[in-house]
Design a protein around this nucleic acid. Structure first.
Lengths: 233, 233
DNA sequence: TACTATTGTCTCGTGATGTGACAATAGGAA
DNA sequence: TTCCTATTGTCACATCACGAGACAATAGTA
């Protein structure tokens, strides 16, 4: 368990881990042991560790992935987000004496990040304090502690802004995908419907897609081509 | 002087305060008493103070303005930005014993903000530790301590992204202004030249400008109209 | 009264985007 | 086999935003 002398007091990070499956955008939510408390996966920063490195460390522990696409979102520095009761509850449910972890009950500043991962490659693993870590549709989340809804909201906004600018979609899809799958990524992030023909024309004109063989789904209609993003260094 | 028990350890903020005058974008830079060290105005966060409030407090002290347009930029959480020697130098130049302010020599995480103010309304005032606080052209800054160049760079990028989205220009100009002045704001933020006719057409088509009487400059040419942004609540 | 620098506006061409049409398929049904 | 349906790839056309240049109107000067 985190120790007082090992971590920076008053500073935490929270990560909004996005994945995409079917037609919907999902994020990973943890549930703490026997408390019914849901929250974003987060953690503390070691005394001599860059914040970014702390986040990468946390992501590796929870997803098994190295080399995750990560972007900082916002830093929440208000007072209203310290919830000592919830924290106490979590500690007690784990048979830890809150008296030994007083620093965890104090005010925290939260630096939030979002991460983009390929849904298929991940096997979420809970940490010491949590029962489970599971995918939830972004528009069907359980109630979150520590005002984490606000963080999710901000992450979604930032993701939307970066959608075209940073080719976000390439990080959320498997290497090869159909145009329709790509369109679903855009639609689920933007929360709007997109006209098929316009979308296809625009994507192709960007010059970042490579076309491969067709994918036969077994359905009674024309088979779509598979595409991949052109690698460039 | 800041006291150890009063402020959160390891957490600071830095503000990039933008102003616009003539044809160039400027920011406020402080120089510490007799050290030749230049840096962005920044400060610490009180134990029970939201970070945003700490920044507003600092801005009020330095500019005399309440109600400043403020936006968070990025949080710098790396290790490379602690410069205990510079900090020691600043303390000693102020006849303070570094032994009494050891917490100020430790690692800091910096939450950066940018502020937009009307250049004409401000009378910059130095704080306890600084000799001067003065306007510098963004593309002609003195060398800055604490890797503050990086913060300025990031603030400029963010400002550019928000230029059209958040009508940034309205915060940098006096209530009434000419189309050419507005164009200079855009050009100095984007760092590029803009075609006059295209710019004028676009601004007018946005429907956010109100036209007033002409301004006679005394120069031998047609007088431009004055405009203001339409207030809306 | 002529001249100059600047401003407000228009036109034209180009490229991106909205919108609908249409032919080409993959498999199922008759 | 032949027809049928859902989906896909592509095109044509209208519309709109924007780059680029042209031009008349104007404030003060010579």
């Amino acid at each position: 368990m985190p120790n007082e002398t090992e971590y920076l007091k008053h500073i935490a990070y929270d990560s909004v881990i996005f994945g995409f499956s079917g037609t919907s955008l999902k994020i990973l939510i943890m549930e703490y042991h026997g408390t019914g408390i849901f929250a974003l996966p987060g953690g503390f920063v070691r005394i001599d560790e860059p914040i970014d490195a702390a986040v990468v460390r946390g992501l590796r522990e929870r997803t098994g992935l190295d080399d995750i696409y990560l972007e900082q979102c916002h830093t929440f520095g208000g007072l209203e987000r310290s919830q000592p009761e919830a924290m106490r509850q979590i500690l007690e449910a784990n048979d830890l004496d809150p008296q030994d972890y007083l620093w965890m009950l104090e005010r925290f500043i939260s630096v939030s990040y979002y991460a983009l991962i390929n849904y298929e490659e991940v096997n979420p693993t809970p940490d010491a304090l949590s029962d489970s870590i599971e995918w939830y549709d972004v528009d069907n989340l359980p109630p979150l502690a520590f005002m984490h809804e606000e963080i999710v909201e901000k992450a979604l906004l930032t993701l939307r802004e970066n959608l075209e600018k940073k080719l976000v979609s390439s990080k959320l899809l498997p290497r090869q995908f159909t145009m329709k799958e790509l369109q679903h990524v855009y639609e689920s992030i933007l929360g709007t419907e997109i006209r098929r023909t316009t979308f296809q024309r625009k994507m192709l004109s960007l010059g970042v897609l490579e076309r491969h063989e067709k994918r036969y789904s077994g359905k009674a209609h024309k088979a779509p081509y598979l595409y991949s993003f052109i690698e460039r260094e």
